[in-house]
Design a protein around this nucleic acid. Structure first.
Length: 570
RNA sequence: GGACCUGUGGUGCAGCCUGGAGUGCACGCCGCCCUGUCAAGGCGGAGGUCGCGGGUUCAAAUCCCGUCAGGUCCGCCA
């Protein structure tokens, strides 16, 4: 139907009579005897010259045959890849007429996302969406290639799976053949891939769709895609190596440059220095520890086990209302308050200044090499609370757009095994209950569980958590101790994970794995701070699809077949 | 469950604070003119439930309350 893509109509084709197909991007008529039509396809735009008028409008689908000719002197368009040539003596066949689109497909104005999502099929015609989705395809291809090259076998796992209530809320699918019983859509193929290890597929991977019925965010959709891997007879370092290789390959394919390295730090270091388990290393504002200087303080606001501080360069200019807003944010994060000190040429400017002794003033003034014009923020509290509060303020005050600057990849290792307790007073697994504790901390499981480190690790890019993984427990004695620590009884473990526990009786190899979000990775490569920009048909924040209208009610017949009954809305 | 921001011809905005006739800008659309444009140009024109409902007022796009939709965030996301 066509000879080549629009963008391929270049000087190398001069003199040939060729056919292109595409959409009318723009029409410029000069009376009865001359008209220019820009034809657009996925590759770009080429100009067709028509002698005489032609009845095409924007977004008509046309098939144009013409002779590739040099443009006359003075009419070359440097802004166009095909700007030195044009198609002349054209015949234009209208393949499909089109109504004027509800919004312009050029990028002259930013279109409200609500409108874009309603007419996503038109939005996808835009150059940016074409680039983003093609970028995503090339990232997928290079990830698959990297895993294949490392000896991994791609295996598909079921979307209809058994409920294993734990962690994220699951999407539920009613069974027609077994009324009253349900499948769930997998939050991840976690158990399926561990069973593949028992099954002898010692290096598995999958570009896996995962589904979680949790509230949406800029970096979270109901359904998202992970590169999911699992391998047997490997260490944590092996897994990190496999993933690093795949991610760096993808980065090179996507951006043209291979990142030099992936840094690494422990979870404890990340918390202490950045106040988060997903630090953005593209900027400083590293947290300082002033606990020693305030150990014997008489100032009530600083009477706490830890005093953490952060220097905000140039922050002395902040208005009182901005400082009040930061204080509000700190309180909403659970801190008792926020102390601020403006560093001026004359000393400290702060409501607390007159309560501090000289040593304390010195500690503030010299904090992180402070200079006149800077602001020092302090939070005094328990260690985790103080760090997390300042870490959040650090992001608020310092973080650049997610794709700006040189990307900073980071491995965060040695996550704690447990974090906090649930309503019933049981410990909560920080990663999941199959995570292997750090070998040095096994004795602490029963005595001091919150101090137990795990062999779990996260990959972070520019302050976004890309993914996480762990070495799994393959020994039933250790698994039993972890279930006990989590308050999971034998019966519960049996009913929830019985098939996994059963499988492990028949020779489970030591294994470990990882999974990371491809949507997030591609978004950062694409320079987008929202993953919806790299997903063809995303949902809104309230989980609706503005194009299809989903979710919608189903027919009476379907309700009957499934034998469903609805509770009235309260 | 909660906080904040947004909603005005097809699209993007201004108008709202400080109430006074649907007022304005840009793009698009329709018609006419135009033989080298490419953000084409010139002339003319059509197009509005100011998201929706209620309240205050002589008078509401504007102030107040509620509600719906979209967004950002907190909670949530083993």
């Amino acid at each position: 139907m066509r000879d080549l893509l629009c963008a391929s109509v270049t000087e190398s084709e001069l003199g040939k009579t060729l056919t292109v197909c595409g959409w009318v991007a723009k029409r410029r008529e000069h009376g009865e005897h001359l008209a220019f039509i820009d034809i657009r396809d996925r590759s770009g735009v080429v100009q067709a010259v028509v002698d005489g008028s032609v009845d095409v409008r924007s977004e008509y689908v046309v098939r144009v045959t013409g002779t590739v000719s040099s443009r006359p002197a003075g009419t070359i368009n440097d802004k166009l890849a095909t700007g030195k040539v044009e198609l002349t003596e054209c015949t234009v066949e209208i393949l499909s007429a089109a109504e004027p689109p509800p919004f312009q497909l050029d990028d002259r104005v930013e279109i409200d996302e609500q409108v874009r999502l309603r007419y996503r099929y038109l939005d996808l015609r835009r150059d940016k969406m074409q680039r983003n989705l093609r970028l995503r395809a090339s990232v997928n291809a290079s990830l698959r290639h990297a895993m294949d090259a490392q000896g991994f076998c791609e295996v598909e796992t079921p979307l209809l799976w058994a409920p294993t209530p734990e962690g994220a809320r699951e999407f539920v699918v009613p069974s027609r053949l077994h009324p009253g019983e349900f499948y769930v859509l997998p939050q991840s193929p976690q158990i399926a891939k561990q069973l593949l290890m028992v099954g002898g597929f010692d290096r598995y991977y999958q570009v896996a769709r995962c589904l979680r019925d949790e509230d949406l965010r800029a970096d979270r959709q109901f359904e998202f895609t992970q590169l999911d891997i699992e391998a047997s007879f490997v260490t944590q370092e092996d897994i990190m190596g496999f993933i690093s290789s795949a991610v760096l390959d993808a980065a090179e394919a996507a951006t043209g440059t291979r990142p030099k390295s992936i840094e690494s730090m422990t979870w404890a270091q990340a918390l202490d220095l950045y106040g988060t388990d997903k630090p953005d290393l593209r900027f400083g504002m590293v947290l300082q520890d002033l606990s020693a200087a305030f150990a014997t303080t008489e100032v009530k606001a600083f009477a706490a086990p830890f005093v953490k501080a952060m220097r905000v360069p140039g922050g002395a200019e902040f208005s009182r209302s901005k400082l009040d807003a930061l204080t509000e944010q700190a309180k909403s994060l659970g801190a008792k308050g926020l102390a601020w000190f403006k560093i001026t040429a004359d000393g400290l400017d702060s409501p607390l200044e007159r309560f501090l002794n000289d040593a304390e003033k010195r500690a503030i003034t010299q904090c992180d090499g402070a200079q006149a014009g800077d602001l020092i923020l302090c939070v005094a509290d328990e260690h985790v609370q103080a760090c997390r509060t300042l870490g959040a303020l650090r992001v608020t005050l310092g973080s650049p757009p997610v794709s700006e600057g040189e990307p900073k990849y980071l491995w965060v290792t040695e996550f704690p095994m447990f974090e906090g307790v649930d309503e019933e007073g049981n410990l909560q697994a920080a990663h999941h209950p199959f995570t292997m504790p750090h070998p040095d901390d096994l004795e602490l499981i029963e005595t001091n569980p919150l101090k137990v480190r795990s062999q779990a690790y996260d990959l972070v890019l520019n302050g976004w958590e890309l993914g996480s993984g762990s070495v799994r427990i393959h020994r039933s004695d250790i698994q039993a101790r972890i279930f006990a620590a989590l308050g999971i009884t034998d019966e519960e473990a049996q009913s929830r994970f019985g098939f996994l526990m059963g499988a492990f009786k028949y020779g489970a190899p030591p294994h470990a794995g990882f999974a990371f979000g491809i949507d997030r990775l591609v978004a950062i490569f694409a320079g987008e701070d929202n993953i919806r920009e790299v997903i063809a048909y995303p949902k809104t924040q309230s989980g609706t699809d503005l194009m299809t209208g989903a979710p919608k009610s189903i027919t009476e017949r379907q309700v009957r077949d499934l034998r469903l009954k609805f509770q009235p809305k309260v």
